[in-house]
Design a protein around this nucleic acid. Sequence first.
DNA 1: AACATCGTTTCAATATATGAAACACACAAT
DNA 2: ATTGTGTGTTTCATATATTGAAACGATGTT
Lengths: 256, 256
Amino acid sequence: MKELKSSVNKTFAILEYFTIQKSEWGVTELADAIGSNKSTVYRFLADLCRLGILYKDPSTEKYSLGLKLFELGSRVQLKSAFVEKTHPELVKVASSITETVHIAILKNQRVFYVDKVESPQGLKISSHIGSSNPAYSTALGKVLLAYLPEENQSQTLSVLTQSPIAYTKHTITNGKALLKELKKIKNDGFAIDREEFELGLICIAVPIFNQNNKVIASLSASGPANRFQEKNVSKYVSTLKKGADAIQEKIGFFNP
Amino acid sequence: MKELKSSVNKTFAILEYFTIQKSEWGVTELADAIGSNKSTVYRFLADLCRLGILYKDPSTEKYSLGLKLFELGSRVQLKSAFVEKTHPELVKVASSITETVHIAILKNQRVFYVDKVESPQGLKISSHIGSSNPAYSTALGKVLLAYLPEENQSQTLSVLTQSPIAYTKHTITNGKALLKELKKIKNDGFAIDREEFELGLICIAVPIFNQNNKVIASLSASGPANRFQEKNVSKYVSTLKKGADAIQEKIGFFNP
DNA sequence: AACATCGTTTCAATATATGAAACACACAAT
DNA sequence: ATTGTGTGTTTCATATATTGAAACGATGTT
């Protein structure tokens, strides 16, 4: 633990090594990766294991993230500075577009619904704040994938297309087709989900940049197919982009 | 921090105070609740806040769980001792019933899909391991609610029915109707979701007891309405119960 | 102005963390 | 069977981080 002094910091520095890509670590290999003494790391792992934050497989003696962390994560209500700042803009967009508006972030190849504002006239949509879907399956996720740096994008795509779920017959689950779609999205500056996630549902999404011009979230409007005419798309995109720009002004360098 | 010695333990003891029911704490009130020195608690909170594990609202100066914990929670792959032990039983049930089988746990009024085995002949279902739904909306969740201790049940029900989502026209969202349904489930020993979560989808679920005879999970079979005839229900329930009994033998006193 | 309350910072004393080394165990090579 | 290698776990003297009482700063009330 070269630079970190407090045990709290050290604890979470250790947990940071447990990713989807490398979810299991032995004591010695983790200590090597961290550049720390083996017995120190062992003691952290053992404590975290007793608490259920980590799980140790008895046969391999490797550690992975445990159920307790999952449970703690499910308590998070996403009522954060980010939501406090963005929610009023969502309300504006929803009243302008008169459809359901979502804001979402990308985490571990999944798109997480961070906030949602329903329009009185809008479709009642089953998405739940805090819930998630594979990123390729919705416009919100596709936009975020489209703006990933190239190094990350191909790795993320290959994970996503390993055993994809086709939610509808329109869902894009093939790597090549998805890559082509992402290039188009990057070029257009917005994404459309044409019943790829749910039959009868159309969704248009735009990227939200922070003040570093880094894409950190996406903003969408969702409604029934019969209401999303091609001629309305540019109007909806324009409104969403106004909302995204207003959010950019508000959130500074926030990077979730 | 009266009894806990290591900082790792202390850190997670603090996080344990942040629940859905009381999600926000000021420094002083948390220190009082813990029975610990105010400045000690402040330093933990400040460190956790810098890491994004907690979020401090600038106006109220109260702390709540932050996005980083959410993100860490979403990395958990639920590949735990529990899943390792139960998965073979799920495979057996799925091949016997020839429908999709799930095992789920109840956390914060939501039912979380912990594992899923699809039968080749079974319906392709959109549920994702790690995803969740409100407990009232599925048979898996209703079973878990039905077996909650009375003290917990009414509180849980009142939270759930505050602003319920009606997934379909069949979803039970009214507190009284739900309570009546739960009594019936407790009496029958199983639950049926008759298109309450998704139109066209039927789900039968039974409780899984651990060796303390405490209900710790539920096991279900899901399929299309046209395949779940009333005359098959008792056969399905019997197979699910055999699976649940076999799981009980395997998991000992496990309590997630 | 004085007082109360909350969050934040300081610093000497103390408790916990650290790392080198030893130990225990499993497996592979000879 | 013996030796060597590698991993995870434990021990103990020393180093370092933590602790708590007290002070400080800010806000609100009387």
